[in-house]
Design a protein around this nucleic acid. Structure first.
Length: 410
RNA sequence: GUGGGAGUAGCUCAGUUGGCAGAGCACAGGAUUGUGGCUCCUGUGGUCGCGGGUUCAAAUCCCGUCUUCCACCCCA
């Protein structure tokens, strides 16, 4: 039997109402914050991600679905949403329309990783990008927007972490300080962190190893090393977030894995054990260099992405009350034509209507109607057809009334 | 990419020292004439993930492979 590719799965009719629910609420909140939807192809040139996400990131180095087009161009399924949106922003010169541009997207992303709970090779992200704003107000607005989405979805078991990771100016100094500090504890670091100390000392901060964690506890703190611009930006952001009373924690270990981030980074995590090890349900940050790096004008931006599959784990079981307005039941073969006509008429009028194609016994059709959650059934037998009438039965109250066929057909 | 657990009916799972493939739920039909849900009866449904091997005999033991789950790496 042919199956889905490993780490990819179908979203079944029984699950789809949850997806619609999340998408609907997000779209409403985006509307409230004046974001416009953008849809980009799932396939892009590999070069976009190499330049956008970073040549040395894990995503680009070992997780992309990459293959050659017929003309030998290297293409990749998008592993994330930001680079394509930035590409679209530049290509369509959206920066000419408005001084600031606020976009959101919802779609499937692809990464060739080992599947795990909350981590799939095809997964969905809902995200937004805010272009053209240097002000910490933009950062605060993004955080407010995320908070509102989580509130409206009635998700409670999460922690909002905010950090700043400085800029190209000040981060190297911090990295150097970290390197010095961790070098003094080199023998007590795990194998990975010993290597990371050279490649990316920031990563040692969010290592899961208990010894590394302990050492990281008293490591130098980023905020002591950032330049004045970054520090002011961070402080003003915090002031704004406090002012609108959004709960958060400052966590200097939120370092993020993608190359393009500067200053503000943030993550929302579920820490009640529902998600296991993959407990980050959304993440994002400011990326000031990305647009110019992809040949656009110098533009500051900030964005985030929600992992929809992870978010769905946290959703309280929303009432999945499937129903249908009518099931039309002919009691015998002679009444099928008229049943079909009545069903059609009701459908045209806007009701949801079904009719059993199997023409089984009355009992079996009633059972079927009950299973579909029919609010009412319409029964047509020999006697009714003779009188141009039908019986409408309310499935909740069991009340029945005789109606005229002519009325329903008009 | 690395390490570990699991795979038997649509779903959740039993299956003893290797000896005829099972249950509950779901689905279908029925319980005196044309009325659902509750109850009762009956029935359909399996290449025991797939491929090799050992054996008179394999769901059961061995090897490989795929999928899935858990963790690492990393990320949403």
């Amino acid at each position: 039997m042919l199956k889905t590719i490993a780490g990819m799965k179908d979203i079944l009719p029984s699950e789809i109402s949850q997806w619609h629910y999340v998408e609907k609420i997000c779209m409403e909140v985006f509307k409230n914050f004046n974001y416009k939807e953008i849809r980009t192809p799932i396939l892009e040139m590999t070069a976009l991600f190499k330049r956008g996400v970073g040549e040395t990131t894990d995503i680009v180095e070992k997780e992309m679905y990459t293959f050659e087009d017929r003309d030998k161009t290297s293409l990749s399924l998008r592993p994330e949403g930001t680079a394509p949106v930035v590409r679209a922003y530049i290509q369509n010169k959206l920066f000419n329309d408005q001084p600031v541009t606020k976009l959101y997207y919802m779609g499937e992303m692809y990464r060739h990783e080992r599947p795990q709970k909350g981590r799939y090779r095809a997964f969905h992200q809902i995200g937004a990008e805010y272009f053209g704003a240097t002000s910490p107000l933009a950062d605060a607005e993004i955080i407010s927007l995320i908070s509102e989405i989580l509130n409206r979805l009635d998700i409670k078991s999460y922690v909002f972490y905010i950090n700043t990771i400085g800029c190209q100016e000040c981060r190297p100094k911090y990295k150097e300080a970290l390197k010095n500090y961790f070098s003094n504890h080199f023998d007590n670091l795990c194998e990975h962190c010993q290597k990371r100390l050279d490649t990316n000392p920031l990563r040692v901060l969010d290592c899961k190893n208990s010894k590394c964690k302990e050492i990281a506890e008293s490591s130098p703190i980023i905020i002591d090393y950032v330049c004045d611009t970054c520090k002011t930006h961070h402080e003003e952001l915090i002031k704004l977030v406090d002012f609108i009373k959004i709960p958060y924690k400052i966590d200097y270990r939120i370092v993020r894995g993608l190359d393009y981030y500067v200053r503000t980074t943030f993550e929302v995590k579920e820490e009640g054990g529902i998600l296991g090890a993959q407990n980050t349900i959304l993440g994002g940050g400011r990326y000031n260099g990305l647009v110019s790096q992809l040949d656009g004008p110098e533009t500051e931006a900030i964005g985030f992405a929600i992992g929809v599959e992870r978010l769905l784990y946290l959703l309280e079981n929303i009432s999945n009350s499937e129903y249908i307005d009518y099931v039309v039941i002919p009691l015998g073969k002679e009444q099928i034509d008229m049943a079909f006509k009545i069903a059609t008429s009701l459908r045209i009028k806007g009701f949801s209507v079904d009719i059993d194609p199997r023409s089984g016994s009355l009992k079996s059709q009633m059972r079927w109607a009950n299973k579909l959650g029919a609010k009412s059934v319409i029964l047509i037998g020999e006697n009714e057809l003779k009188n141009s009438s039908y019986i409408e039965k309310n499935m909740e109250t069991s009340e029945q009334k005789v109606c005229s066929i002519n009325d329903v057909l008009n």
